[in-house]
Nucleic acid binder design. Structure first.
Lengths: 341, 341
DNA sequence: AGTTGAAATGTAAGCGCTTGCATTTTCCAT
DNA sequence: ATGGAAAATGCAAGCGCTTACATTTCAACT
């Protein structure tokens, strides 16, 4: 155990600059309330000492952290990357820092992360989707922590949300698939338990099936975690049946990428032999061949607006109005007319 | 501005349980130093009040945060995901929390993040690669913050490192490429400025070129940020020349994925018309067709060992020994013999 | 019952900052 | 010059916890 080298404190700076700690503090927080000469003196003392304010102390005294926490289901693929990037840029603009953690799609982990972030004094929280245990909402409310949901819009969630209508978006895409003559569809869905986005997307397809007067029971569905390889495996299972589907709708682009690549492996031509669709419109969707027909989500817009709304909630301490963002279908090559065969 | 709802404090719990704050604190931190009956009473008071310790206050008093910070170049692709996952799992095992932030491959941003993390009291820091301004190392040293480098091993870096030899790994792969008869190679490298991994990988290829008695000047190199699309564009540029290379070695799998997909687009057969190699062995490498020949990096092992080493540095306050991990070539289909054409 | 040492608990001093309020300085208008 | 308001600065009280040290309790001996 070597001797500790205590970091310089406000006191050290104050002494060195020959002023009071209050003045140093003001130099840092409200520089216009300090006269230029003093400010300069303090500034050089700070530099000479290599002083950095102690975050914990500042938080204790000011009861504000200027920190926003976000808990996303995964960092392992690009689904949330772009939106989160925009979120954090907007936050940065306003002087806030973002703390991200990932729940690995596990409700229990998400809860733990929420508590950790709150204990760390996050001024506000960004959560993905509406599905979570009621006691979490109660905890947030009791603690009076502003929280906002993104990636899923619902006018009557327990929390305001900024996102899109997963169900309607997928419904629309399914209609398009039907319009192209497909009748035997299958869905490779993400795990729906505790994930309203996955569930609503699946519901969207079912809505379309019903709307066409088809039997919803006839719709084959495989639920699997959002990983390329799982998409590939699910696709293989689907296609190795006697009467395979002519179109496979995937819960997101990652799953669809897996399906696409496996199709190639199996010698299946997309979209001639089978059509594949995705959801999210991540970078990969554009680069794959055939390029993926998918639902475009306004990631950057969503992230930016979520940041603004959350900051508003934090600073005004008033509930924000949610916002319904719109998605649209991006038609590329992976979806084609049903093979008459 | 609604009225504030102050979170319950240790004091509240103590009063409710009829004990002193010290006892409550001990219940939380050293439960075996409190008799069972008291502990239970305190426990129920905690639950009744919904008490969560205030992190900032705890940090101030204990001068420990049990937090480790990690700054990675990007979260936008999977390169660091697996290693970081293992890192954080190991940390969690030992009661530490991980704070991640991304520098977007910008040295200035990295520096800012380092300062932020230090100000927030990170007990230790995980950094990627050795390339950074000397004053950053001085800052860390002055503050006596344990820090460790990963993803790049160097016995004489300013910080101990746990990683592999990027140069040797790429050298070995280049040798394999030469062995297959290739003579016209090109490299699609990541941006080397401020990125020793990218630089060393490139150096590795150059070493092999020189070792074969070829002119290093003849080696075409395109530097571009690590994004699928950039890999694709660079590949297109390389292949649209009069005498295109017969093998394109990419600085990582993301770039290689772009190259591969673009090759498909251009009607080029891989590896018959052109060979492509990657580096990192991320999930995508296995799933692409042709599957990518690449350098396997022991991500999980590296993450786990880095966590152990860093915790050791933090708790013993002694410099850790670095560790040289080994990579190996994974031969899949994207690399084949040189076309005699 | 009386001692006594260990175990359990309590007391109170900070940790490094912000900020309301008190005090001093500055700078005009007179 | 000088009174006085405004600007600049200083003083000191916390913020919610941990922990060294002091005190009390308890059980096991004589």
């Amino acid at each position: 155990m070597s001797k500790l080298k205590p970091a310089p404190t406000l006191d050290d700076v104050a002494r060195k600059a020959g002023v009071s700690t209050a003045t140093v503090s003001r130099c840092l927080n409200t520089p216009d309330r300090v006269v230029e000469a003093t400010r300069k003196r303090v500034q050089s003392a700070i530099e000479a000492l290599g002083y950095t304010p102690n975050f914990a102390a500042r938080v204790m005294a000011a009861k504000r952290t200027f920190t926003i926490g976000a808990i996303i289901p995964t960092m392992e693929n690009a689904i949330f990357a772009r939106g989160l990037q925009a979120f954090q840029e907007e936050l940065h603009q306003h002087g806030y820092t973002l703390l991200v953690s990932s729940s690995a799609y596990k409700p229990a982990t998400e809860e733990e992360q929420i508590r950790t972030l709150v204990a760390r004094g996050a001024d506000g929280l960004l959560l993905i989707g509406h599905d979570r245990a009621p006691h979490i909402y109660e905890f947030l409310q009791r603690r009076d922590i502003p929280a906002l949901v993104a990636w899923s819009f619902s006018p009557d969630g327990r929390l305001p949300s900024i996102g899109f209508d997963n169900r309607a978006a997928m419904y629309e895409l399914a209609q398009r698939v039907f319009d192209l003559g497909h009748r035997r569809l299958a869905v490779i869905s993400g795990i729906t338990h505790g994930n309203d986005r996955a569930r609503l997307r699946l519901d969207g397809v079912r809505d379309a099936v019903r709307q066409r007067g088809l039997d919803p029971q006839g719709l084959q569905v495989i639920e699997t975690p959002y990983e390329i390889e799982n998409g590939a495996d699910a696709f293989a299972r689907l296609m190795s049946q006697d009467t395979p589907p002519t179109a496979v709708m995937c819960g997101n682009d990652v799953l669809a990428a897996g399906a696409l690549l496996r199709a190639q492996d199996m010698g299946l031509k997309v979209p001639q032999d089978v059509s594949i669709t995705g959801f999210d419109d991540i970078e990969l969707a554009r680069i794959l061949r055939p390029a993926l027909t998918t639902v475009h989500v306004p990631h950057r817009e969503m992230g930016g607006k979520a940041a603004k709304a959350l900051i508003e909630m934090v600073e005004k301490r008033a509930p924000a109005a949610g916002e319904h963002l719109f998605t649209h279908i991006v038609e590329r090559q992976s979806l084609g007319p049903a093979n008459s065969a």
